[in-house]
Design a protein around this nucleic acid. Structure first.
Length: 241
DNA sequence: AACCGCCTCAACCGCAGAAGC
DNA sequence: AGCTTCTGCGGTTGAGGCGGT
């Protein structure tokens, strides 16, 4: 309570705020969010800063629609782990738990609606609080997935772990367009990661900044000597700190 | 052109566990 | 060992966009 909390900003982030956050994460790394929130002058909570970074500003993020492979992987992993979104996200480089969560909700809604249309009656003891109409059994093509309703059974019995092929596919795809960042994911470590592919922001649509020039300015202002090249559908960022 | 309903996704909240002191 | 602070996770919400009528 008090004066401090009254001045805390909420809601959508502005370009200026993004800029400040990128600068300070560049300086101090992506840890100690309360500290970053304080020293950056952002009237945001550390939590809010972290979320903005993780879900939107992180340079390893892959934007845009999920590929069929990714969708399939999400479904498979959800059938295995339930609503462990962050755990699932770790298996999809460049995707956030939030993104996967959103995808799942959308997906489940669609499935539920299609089920309704087909007039298939499914008993639903699901404990999910968000998707009431989600059936326990979801049929996609020839396969079935079991919604654990956020109460996953670790390694479902009888489940054959055959994700390797799918995962390999994803990796093969992703090596051309993006690489996961190394463990220490601060901007300051770009160089040690070698050339790093930037977020696949589509300018004017996903990028918080509108042009390559603006991006270069931003990273330069953040103390990062970088060159951004447009490359097909995405944008490649090479830092030379 | 205006309205309406649905969909998407960014951002919030509360909670739990980890880490630090 | 116990308290405080930080971090991460999962659930939820609401604004804005979009398509249909």
């Amino acid at each position: 309570m008090g004066i401090q909390e009254e001045s805390i900003r909420k809601g959508p982030w502005t370009e200026q705020e993004d800029f400040q956050l990128v600068c300070f994460v560049g300086l101090f790394g992506d840890r100690r969010w309360d500290f970053i929130a304080k020293v950056s002058g952002l009237k945001r909570t550390g939590k809010s800063c972290r979320l903005r970074w993780v879900n939107y500003l992180h340079p390893g993020l892959k934007r845009g629609k999920m590929t069929p492979h990714e969708e399939r992987l999400v479904l498979e992993l959800h059938s295995k782990w339930g609503n462990r979104w962050s755990r699932i996200a770790r298996k999809l480089p460049g995707r956030t738990d939030n993104e996967i969560k959103n995808f799942w909700r959308t997906h489940m809604r669609k499935v539920a609606q299609e089920k309704k249309k087909k007039d298939v009656v499914v008993v639903s003891p699901s404990t999910s609080s968000t998707i009431d109409s989600v059936p326990t059994t979801i049929e996609i093509g020839e396969e079935s997935f079991y919604d654990s309703g956020g109460n996953p059974s670790e390694e479902q019995k009888g489940y054959c772990y055959t994700m390797d092929d799918i995962w390999k596919d994803i990796e093969d795809q992703s090596t051309n367009v993006m690489k996961p960042l190394c463990d220490d994911q601060s901007y300051g470590n770009f160089v040690s990661c070698g050339p790093v592919v930037s977020p696949l922001w589509e300018y004017g649509q996903y990028s918080p900044w509108k042009t390559v020039e603006e991006d270069n300015k931003l990273y330069a202002a953040a103390g990062m000597n970088s060159n951004i090249y447009e490359h097909g559908e995405g944008v490649v960022l090479i830092t030379q700190n």
